[in-house]
Nucleic acid binder design. Structure first.
Lengths: 195, 195, 195, 195
DNA sequence: TATGAATGAGTGTTCATTCAT
DNA sequence: GATGAATGAACACTCATTCAT
């Protein structure tokens, strides 16, 4: 048994450490992203986490990997909210509106994250695709439902809409008079077919 | 008149090369901004213009000065288009739509410029204000006309709208399926009061 | 005791190379200071030490930090020599003379260091204060002893004297016929009350 | 006559302009040297004089040439004061003291000039030699008179003394508690043979 | 001859990334 | 594995000096 323990424990122990580090990094990154944006220096994140910089590179080889990991849960929640809202809301368009609202909420509370949905940053393609790959299908489902209900025209692409919403949610902190949620709502309202 | 021209020219003459350089810089900057964004290294712009770096600093002490100079004419044209469209269009809302369309056109053809309308860049306040100070009043005039015509509700701030449009026009190049003009049109459509 | 040593060493071990680098930097800086003055380019010092520039900034964030580190030991030795000389010399004035001599010795062998005691360089206040804060009290003690012994008048300020000696020790290399020690001795001689 | 005028006048006219410029430059340099030291940017001096930078280079190819020209008159006055003081003062040593006092006065009122008497600045050899070549003989004369009068020992070199005084006069502005005149007087006092 | 625009080497400083310990 | 020291490319900015006008 001692033998078994010896063989089994160390890897587990290591993994325990590693996991602790990974979690520390995620927490630290979340904090730093809020304070300094997702482009914050690697050092800053490492320092906040209390680990070496090498540890970041081990767990998250690219910055995109780290950002994805930081927001994975919230993205997932957003994904899951789609069908739920569709089931609960009075109309598909109302569900869409609420879901977009939720998405904007998510973006604006994560300083700088929305900026990563922009395409002109080199190296962020991975990141953009990760988010869009997960959220676009949900959005598409909501859109389709609204189309089927005759509430909106069928000529809007889910991906394009997500990009637009992402853009609208950019750079909030500097301007307290800019309400991304409101702007997004206007855009969604613009989707309606005149009846 | 020829005489007058002759007398007026000399003071300007001295800068024949200087003006050539200034224009070369503006052209170079416009090109580089498209290729690498408005944050492109000073050296790159200087190289593209075929001048030394010091020359940039002489003509445009800060980056904002250069960006403003690059887009000054186009901004002015945009400003002047407002009243013209208002006079020509069938309804105020149509004028607004067309003007926004023109604004987006301007932004999306100038890679990276739209990004400067974001607030989270330090040191770009001057720039943002320059653009907004000129365009917001025009937008406000168009909005008010539409409000007066009962076409849209009166609860939209011109500055907020400009910011939204600016955001929608960000990061186009990476995604050929994203049509900023369309998205902007949707947002403007969303302004309409249901009749 | 071997055990204690073993336990004490490890925390220091990790920095085996760092310490080597730090020492290399101190040596290199001392050399370069002699050749090019304390204002020598950071790159030159890094090259002389065979390290990257970042390494200098890691170890010595400001230039003053580096200069202080380079001369710390010698300043300390000078500080400690004061009381020793006072105890050993025949008279307080003799002790003062010898101590000043030692100080000049220190300064003239460190090219450019004396120049840092000048006040007209911006950003060197820290440095000047570091040196003066340590040496002025010693000088004051020696002065007071001489005053008490009736050898010199009591109207000389230690800080002022240090500044004067520092100035006298400046810019030696260019003129082999200039003997700072001699000049300093004359000044100290001038302190004597005529008897 | 018209011919003569044509040939003779233009060069004279030109010289009048050139002289005006030269004087303007000297005035400007004197002003700027006080404000920013003798190492002030060429541009600053040109701007103060209201001329182009090329004009400075035409009149004063090197910085040393400009500095020399700026202080030529005062140096000359200092030179002439030597014999005068020797004739007027009670003793040669008193004359020496007064002359040194005058020299220090000259230096400390010219910000940064004293620093140029230091040898560790590259390219200032010309400057140093210009000043010393003129002042050392005067100092030597005063020293010799004092030696002849038995007031001071004969082992002090005039050039060395001038260098020492120059050094003592360096970097005054930053320290209101440093009195260069006093320090110089102490040094001169130290020259006296004990009687 | 005067001007001042242009040049570009020089310098400080930051920070992503690697790798010896 | 984890650490964080080291690297060095990248960049902004200054200013002495040259030279076209």
């Amino acid at each position: 048994m001692a033998d078994t323990a010896k063989r089994a424990d160390p890897p587990v122990r290591k993994r325990a450490d590693a996991r602790r580090n990974e979690q520390a990094l995620l927490d630290a990154a979340a904090t730093v992203f809020v304070a300094s944006g997702v482009q914050a220096p690697v050092r800053e994140i490492a320092a906040q986490a209390g680990v070496g910089m090498g540890t970041i590179y081990r767990h998250f080889p690219t910055r995109a990997d780290l950002i994805i990991a930081v927001y994975r849960h919230q993205v997932q929640a957003c994904v899951e909210a789609g069908p739920a809202l569709l089931a609960a809301a009075e109309t598909p368009h109302a569900a869409l509106t609420q879901w977009i609202d939720r998405f904007v909420d998510f973006l604006v509370t994560k300083h700088g994250l929305a900026a990563t949905l922009r395409a002109d940053q080199q190296g962020f393609d991975t990141l953009i695709h990760y988010f869009l790959d997960r959220l676009v299908p949900v959005c598409a489902q909501l859109l389709q439902a609204a189309v089927d209900a005759g509430q909106i025209s069928d000529d809007v692409d889910a991906r394009e809409l997500m990009r637009a919403i992402g853009n609208l949610s950019v750079g909030i902190e500097g301007d307290p008079d800019y309400d991304a949620r409101r702007m997004a709502a206007l855009l969604v309202a613009g989707l309606r077919v005149s009846t």
